[in-house]
Amino acid sequence: MDIKVLGPGCNNCVTLEARTRDALDDLGTDATIEKVTDTAQIMGYGVMATPGLVIDGNVVVSGRVPSVKQLTKLMKG
């Protein structure tokens, strides 16, 4: 799985990254997590409110920080 956390690095983005890692641990899945901090790149995903989460090229979260449980559900597809 290829995961990208979109956000310039505010609190919410840090929380989202931490929860994403927790969710991955719960699932026992391997994934690469990349942080995208460049505004132009973030906009390229069509995300207007940070933080955003991209799984395998699909934007699944924007403008909020879901719970670990919700993230796990999102990763299972």
Partner: peptide
Amino acid sequence: FCSCSSVPLFIGFVA
């Protein structure tokens, strides 16, 4: 929205 969203929001609206 958190203050760090103001830039993407601004761009998203204006663009």
